[in-house]
Amino acid sequence: MIEVEHLTKRYGRTVAVDDLSFSVRPGRVTGFLGPNGAGKSTTMRMILGLDRPTSGTVRIDGKPYRELDRPLTRVGALLDAKWVHPNRSARAHLRWMARTNRLPNRRVDEVLETVGLSGVADRRAGGFSLGMSQRLGIAAALLGDPEILMFDEPVNGLDPEGILWIRQIMQRLASEGRTVLVSSHLLSEMAQTAEELVVIGRGKLIRQCGTAQFVDEASGATIRVRTPQVERLRGALHQEGIEVRDEVVDELPTLVVAGTSSERVGEIAAAQGVVLHELSVQRGSLEQAFLQLTNEAVEYHAHDGATTGNEGTDR
């Protein structure tokens, strides 16, 4: 269980994380979603006690990270796969980590086996491909067999095979009852792995809810209706307090209805004896919707990206 309460981090005038509160529960993969620069990595570093919060607290099973005894046995994390000395072998890297937390050398061999690096364990980590580095990072996270795991953008830059492997390992870890927090800037990726989402933008919490629910809301499903009796149906829907918009689709006049279900529209039409030529649910693109939702919260807009830098937060 990770509990984040009123977490804030300022760098000078820039607010990286702004009064953020959420909790991550065991037994499921929780996605930590937000556009680049939203404060995901900073939050994760504060969870691990690496960065000092300007205010607010983080508790791991009720305790601040810095008070954990043998922390690698409680929390495993992969924040950056490149945090390895390039001239050190993968085995040596894991061995010194194991030693700090009094873990047996046997664990090193076990996790190397788990991630499939046993064959290259004595080669220098600097020569590893991105996929191999990522595996080494996951081995390091698993080293202490911790109950809580955190991964920062673990699939970035990986090939499809690597992405699949990471997804599987995260789901397996959650099914073993562990707490898994994974960050990403891609909703489509999170939709595939995470059961629950913590969505942030510009350091602020936007939503914490189930993935399916978020996807439904974010994609803002609309209903498209075509009928020869446009005026009649519009009047009936208005009377029920349902919002209606006129559009022209394929050169045909069409009503677009939001905030209700297709069943309800069908029932209203039948009650009024209106003939329907089309009644269909329209889902927008997920990424489109996600962008819309976090839009005000995005720090760097593509069109004025060059000038936003530090002023980003003043807008």
């Binding site: 570093r45 691990l48 006690g49 690496l50 990270y65 810095r66 008070e67 954990l68 922390p71 690698l72 994390a77 924040l79 950056d80 490149k82 945090w83 390895v84 000395h85 390039p86 890297h93 980590m97 700090t100 937390n101 390091a140």
Partner: peptide, 18 residues
């Protein structure tokens, strides 16, 4: 300084938060 350069200082502090 190489620990800072290659980010292993963060790993160290993660393993030994004191």
């Amino acid at each position: 300084t190489t620990e800072y350069r290659f980010g292993t200082m963060r790993t160290t502090f993660q393993a030994v938060p004191g």
